[in-house]
């Protein structure tokens, strides 16, 4: 018996609902040597900014219980370099390409969208609105529903492409932010980005990250992510990409049950580059075992 894993994410046609989480897969170049990118539902690149960014002072990583902290700081070579060196590589695969962007200002987001709209072969834009170092008094765009709405509107005005807005979990009321970006024209929502955390070396009394605090990812954040996907699914109609601590097919199933239309895998790629392809096979097996024929039959089906 064959099952249908394909989903249509607001116009992005995916042969299955599994993709990498931005920043954990580069542009796919390195992992293409270890796994089959053509099996993925979509290819999501590391956040690009208008100008190159050097990123944060090391150390940038720290393993913690059931997860890791990172303070990379959006190191990237800028959009021009991305168009020249990464996008052509990504286009070699038969997989929709999603470009994740971040800006310091509304105008930067707008300009990035305009530039991406002008190139061929891109299937969608993901707005990273939990990025560091922004103009608005140091408050991430994603932490204020007003700013989240403004940045989504600015992007919406400047692109025809499906627009995904990636939310930060470092907020009290995620549904409010989700509604704000939906009303401003988002086509889909991805969540969650990392949770701000900290770890201290008990010998040296120094923080384990050069940046002092960093973003927590991995299994530790999965229950929070599932809860947030579930809450957002109650409050908006647009599709959701569930992200946070997914390392196997059953983790992914939880997100579908909570209301996600697709999932993205981050930290687990570092541990096993086969994680996403294993999840795709595992989802098929799960649906067969449970007697379903289509992934859509489990989306949002949590019994509460």
């Amino acid at each position: 018996m064959s099952v249908n894993l394909s989903v249509n994410l607001s116009g992005i046609k995916m042969k299955n609902p599994v993709m990498p989480a931005s920043g954990t897969f580069g542009a796919g170049r390195e992992y293409s040597e270890l796994m089959d990118i053509n099996r993925l539902g979509a290819l999501v690149a590391k956040t690009v900014t208008l100008k190159p960014r050097d990123g944060n002072i090391p150390p940038r990583l720290c393993e913690v219980s059931s997860g890791m902290l990172n303070s990379i700081g959006l190191q990237n070579e800028g959009i021009d370099h991305f168009f020249k060196h990464d996008l052509p590589f990504m286009k070699e695969f038969d997989v929709p390409i999603i470009i994740n962007i971040a800006g310091n200002s509304l105008e930067e987001y707008a300009q990035l969208c305009r530039e991406i709209d002008r190139v061929e072969g891109v299937s969608g834009i993901e707005l990273n609105i939990s990025c560091p170092n922004i103009k608005a008094g140091g408050i991430a765009f994603g932490a204020s529903s007003k700013l989240a709405e403004q940045v989504t509107a600015a992007a919406r005005y400047n692109t025809q492409l499906p627009l995904i807005v990636k939310l930060t979990p470092n907020v009290y009321n995620i549904s409010k932010i989700a509604r704000a970006v939906t009303s401003a024209g988002a086509d889909a929502i991805s969540l969650i980005n990392t949770m701000v955390g900290m770890s201290i070396d008990t010998n040296t009394f120094k923080p384990n990250l050069g940046n002092i605090t960093g973003g927590l990812s991995g299994p530790a954040i999965k229950p929070i992510a599932v809860r947030m996907v579930w809450e957002v699914a109650q409050s908006v109609k647009i599709p959701i990409i569930g992200i946070g601590g997914i390392s196997n097919a059953l983790d992914a199933v939880e997100f579908f049950l909570a209301g996600a239309t697709a999932v993205a895998v981050g930290t687990a790629n570092f541990i096993n580059p086969q994680t996403m392809t294993d999840i795709i096979s595992g989802l098929e097996a799960y649906l067969v075992e449970k007697g379903f024929t289509d992934i859509s039959q489990i989306i949002g089906k949590v019994k509460t």
């Binding site: 390195e30 590391k46 940038r60 990172n70 190191q75 570092f270």
Partner: peptide
């Protein structure tokens, strides 16, 4: 350094050099 991916993807194992990270 501490490493996550080990293959140049995560940008977590940065060292500071005269040519940048």
């Amino acid at each position: 350094t501490k490493m996550a991916c080990g293959i140049g993807v995560c940008l977590g194992c940065a060292c500071v050099t005269k040519q940048g990270y």
